[in-house]
Design a protein around this nucleic acid. Structure first.
Lengths: 301, 301
DNA sequence: GGATTACTATAAGTTTTTTTTATGGTATTA
DNA sequence: TAATACCATAAAAAAAACTTATAGTAATCC
């Protein structure tokens, strides 16, 4: 069954006129006549009979028209839904972020996003930078906010902001007596790192490499709480995001150690798959982030 | 929304393969690829994304697929119904007949028809020959079994059988004393005729004309019962179909008068509209009648 | 781990389908 | 009885769909 022919037939009956059906289909009247005729021929059934000037459905035509009504109602419904997707009146933003970004950056971004597009459902996935990068590659998430990593060539990234990590030690640690230390002094020092795949870990290690220092990594952990506890017990030092240990710093159970070479600064990137065209919500999110960045962080000259 | 493209998309997902969809559509694989691609382009939405070798629907694709499922189920349903009409597994035979034929001929014809096509509903319409001819012209009935009449050029007819009408009178009538009478003796005689539009009336009048006689028509009526009653009261004579007055003849309340010129014989025709292609049930009925006629009434040499 | 298999994508050219233009025919209406 | 408002038909043109040929890419198999 040729559905173009069915549509011609349907509109002829609905509008009770070949001419009006043609207008609605944006074709000329003979096109409609031909379509309906060849439809009848292909079905081997008469559908419409002329009684004088009036047209009348045969039994088969009557039944077919009822089907056509249902069919084209579904089609128009589907069309509308597709337009909704385009107009961001429907859909889901599936985005990933590291724990830190999910906590400190995403809330404001997503609330602005939901203000702009209240009909879009947001699913926020959490994991370390490497996992998130992988989820983008696997198209589980379309976007992810992660720390700078060596990324697969298939992933594109958009610089979003910088993050500073500070050196943290127990008040009992000898560094805590000092005003500031040099990175070099970390050589051989017991250091606690985040797990493999962490963007901050990568940034820290990069810094070490840059300065040619080799601290002794006594522990790797993915749990920030664990690392905090371990540093408190003076088992080693670590690098952290200050807001994460606000309470400990206030209570004095942890100390920030100034570094002569400056804190560890690394980049926050919004990443996405380079070969995949983004869904409208992701597209919109990306666009929004570019806008906000321009507003908040005016580019340096 | 181009439904050919929708179908390609639908089958690709249903069969999880462009190649298999192509097979099902009886086209080559590139045709399907192109259709799906241009569908996405026309919607301005990605529907399918490739994840490695596996294909995966986008959100919009998912929703659209659900619509497509419903749509193509309806289409295939409709197709089946249309086939049913063709195969005489569905449909209606709308046929007309005069009262006499409805009583004496149609029962056997229709029971044979229903034996052959038990799924076809039959609607039998009744009226005099002229009304039935008109109903065929107006396409209210597709077929009708009527007595020979002067028919519109747009009506075709198939000779079916002959019917004999006899002259009937009251036993008190002077004709009842005679062995037989000549038609000429009806000149000036009180005669009761059927109403205008009746095929038997036309046949009777034709006979009168042929013999150049002018009986006095004292009454025209469409009700056979009335005419029977009237003749019984010896108010006039009439022409009737013998089986219709079987009881009266047995009881002796009516008498058949032999005519020297022979009884009035006229034709039963199955008529149908010449410009309208018949519906499958009517087609089948017509074909059946031709067959039966051949069996029952071998053509004379 | 390179070859094989089993797909999908792309490009160019062809075929088929659909549409238009032009015109004829036919009821209904003024 | 002409005018009007339709629908039907034929031929030509335009558009859409399809095919052939071939390239590209994962997954799979020795």
């Amino acid at each position: 069954m040729n559905l173009r022919q069915l549509e011609a037939f349907y509109l002829v009956i609905k509008r009770k006129s070949f001419t009006r059906a043609a207008e609605e289909l944006n074709v000329t009247q003979p096109a409609v006549t031909i379509q309906v005729k060849s439809f009848e021929k292909s079905l081997n059934l008469k559908l419409i009979q002329q009684v004088g000037k009036r047209m009348q459905l045969t039994e088969a035509g009557e039944l077919l028209y009822q089907y056509a009504e249902k069919i084209f109602e579904l089609v128009s419904d589907a069309n509308e839904k597709m337009r909704d997707f385009k107009k961001l009146m429907r859909g889901t933003l599936q985005i990933g972020a590291t724990k830190n970004y999910a906590r400190y950056i995403m809330p404001s971004l997503l609330s602005e996003f939901q203000r702009r597009y209240p009909r879009i459902k947001v699913i926020l996935d959490e994991g370390n930078s490497e996992d998130m990068a992988k989820s983008v590659l696997e198209k589980k998430n379309e976007l992810a906010l992660i720390s700078q990593l060596n990324l697969d060539r298939k992933i594109k990234s958009l610089f979003f902001s910088t993050v500073e990590f500070v050196l943290v030690a127990s008040p009992e640690h000898r560094f805590s007596q000092r005003k500031s230390i040099s990175l070099r002094e970390l050589n051989g020092e017991s250091v606690i790192l985040r797990e493999k795949g962490s963007g901050s870990r990568a940034a820290v290690l990069r810094k070490f490499q840059e300065y040619g220092i080799w601290p002794s990594v006594i522990m790797e952990a993915s749990s920030l709480d664990f690392i905090v506890g371990y540093v408190k017990q003076n088992k080693g030092v670590s690098f952290m995001f200050e807001p994460d240990i606000k309470e400990e710093l206030e209570k004095g159970t942890l100390k920030v150690i100034s570094l002569e070479e400056g804190n560890i600064i690394f980049f926050t990137d919004l990443i996405y798959h380079s070969e995949k065209s983004l869904s409208p919500p992701s597209e919109a999110f990306l666009k929004m982030v570019k806008e906000l960045k321009k507003e908040l962080v005016p580019p340096l000259p």
